[in-house]
Amino acid sequence: MDKNLDSEIWRRFKQGDKKAFSYIFDTYHMQMFEYGHRFTFDESFIKDCIQDVFFELASKKDKLSTTDNILFYLLKSLRIRIFTNLRKNKNVSADFNDDLLADFRLEYTTEVDSEEKELRLDQLAQALNQLPPRQKETIFLKFYKNLSNSEVAELMGVNYQSVGNAIQKAINKLRDIIDSDQDSIVLFLRMHIR
């Protein structure tokens, strides 16, 4: 995505250009839905949150800050909205919302062919599946949405350093699997050759 193009589209959006509005809605609403859907199974809750985000953007268009990454801006607004609405609903009915918020759902399949198995891909996939929700969300935003560390930090409300740290932790875990497996094969062979 060309970031400069984003700035220009956003500028027009703020000025009340209907085409810019249409473009932004059409381009991003499904991406927002997909992201929101990873927090909860309740699709209509997410749909309502997206509606709230767009109604708010539409009514405050001239007061919005500038951005060179519209997707980042929208995902951030949606994330804030999801947690605000959750809190609001919680006051109404406590038991309804306790299981509304799932872990951040990001799963990898472990059914692999023999070649992939030889490379321990099934174990790597398992390890990725077991990462804590916040690390999964970080990976999702960085790998699939191309956000920078500072954007991820701002979006998730953590400090810049901890974004890098969270991913480093995940990578170390994965490296352990690959290396330890190598070691255990060597060990296994030694034991049996003897």
């Binding site: 209907k18 509005f21 249409s22 809605f25 059409d26 609403h29 499904m30 839905f33 997909e34 859907h37 990873r38 699709e43 209509s44 749909k47 997206i50 509606q51 767009f54 109604f55 953007l57 539409a58 759902r105 990001l106 799963e107 990898y108 399949t109 692999v112 891909l121 996939a125």
Partner: peptide
Amino acid sequence: FKKKDIKASHVRASEFDQIKHEAL
């Protein structure tokens, strides 16, 4: 290549159309 897709949505495209027009 190994990401599991989140299962298909029950939210219809027309519901998003609706939101778009209200927002417009």
